[in-house]
Design a protein around this nucleic acid. Structure first.
Length: 266
DNA sequence: GCCATATGGAAAG
DNA sequence: TTTCCCTATGGCA
């Protein structure tokens, strides 16, 4: 259920636990057993995040590709318990254990296949990738910017929350076509995504409310939502905008929930 | 216990 | 554009 910042944290956590160690790899649930046995008791080289995709390199040029999708979840433990629930992938040493449940994708691939996959992933704000090619595409596109932001070949790692919040902070209506943006607006939004997502990596939660709006936000915000942080519009449907007090709106855009302030985002 | 929901994306139609 | 994947959780009976 994560956006890119979470995947980057998980890559970091896996590296901290397992880099250069010979690890036990298994699939208690069974579905990944055959692949797990291929890398079982081999050396964990490193894990890397590209947008929402995670790549784990093992010795002998084996790579596990993971995408969490909506339900996927990692659990990190300092011991290896009896399996609870459906664990697709488990990596462990005597000191540490990482368990993966419900991923959208978990497959053993070759370095060549990894390269192909990575080539389809767009620039990632957290990796400080160059957005110039994407800027050209966005500024020429008739598609709504709210749709473009969710396209992982354009903005790797951006999900529904960062989309809603970046557009709010930029004062841009999600329905505006990409070509309606100025080059300056695009650059400002990209830089904002870099800032916001780096904060997300650092804190492990999504915080997007500017300090000057924060006291007000804290007072009016409902319970902490699942994103864990403080946001302007995501899942605040019907609640007053922190800036103009207009009700936050919600709509369906291409099958995903969209949140915005009709006043602040013309 | 049952049902709706979720920060995603590929495949099918 | 719709369906499916696949798991956990929270709200409600």
């Amino acid at each position: 259920m994560p956006e890119g910042h979470v995947i980057h944290r998980q890559a970091r956590a896996l590296n901290k636990l397992f880099t250069d160690q010979v690890v036990e790899v298994s699939s208690p649930q069974g579905r990944f057993s055959q692949s797990a046995s291929v890398v079982n008791e081999t050396r964990f080289v490193r894990s890397q995040a590209y947008g929402k995709h995670l790549f784990i390199n093992f010795e002998h040029a084996h790579v596990i590709h993971i995408h969490l999708g909506l339900y996927g979840k990692w659990t990190f433990l300092n011991h290896t318990p009896e399996p609870v629930g459906l664990i697709r992938l488990q990596i462990s040493t005597p000191e540490s254990c990482a368990q993966l449940r419900g991923p959208n994708a978990c497959t053993l691939i070759s370095p060549a296949e990894a390269k192909t996959l990575k080539s389809k992933i767009g620039p990632d704000p957290i990796r400080k990738d160059d957005p110039s090619a994407v800027r050209t595409k966005v500024l020429a596109s008739n598609a709504p910017i709210g749709v473009l932001l969710m396209d992982q070949t354009l903005f790797a790692g951006v999900g529904n929350i960062y989309r809603a919040e970046a557009l709010f902070r930029a004062g841009i209506n999600p329905q505006s076509p990409g070509k309606a943006l100025t080059s300056e607006q695009f650059d400002a939004m990209w830089i904002d995504l870099v800032d916001l997502m780096k904060i997300g990596v650092r804190r492990g939660r999504i915080d997007t409310v500017r300090p000057e709006h924060l006291p007000k936000a804290m007072k009016r915000a409902p319970r902490e939502d699942r994103h864990g942080g403080e946001v302007y519009v995501y899942r605040r449907t019907g609640l007053p905008c922190f800036i103009c007090s207009h009700e936050v709106a919600e709509a369906d855009l291409r099958g995903r929930n969209l949140f915005w302030c009709p006043t602040c985002q013309k």
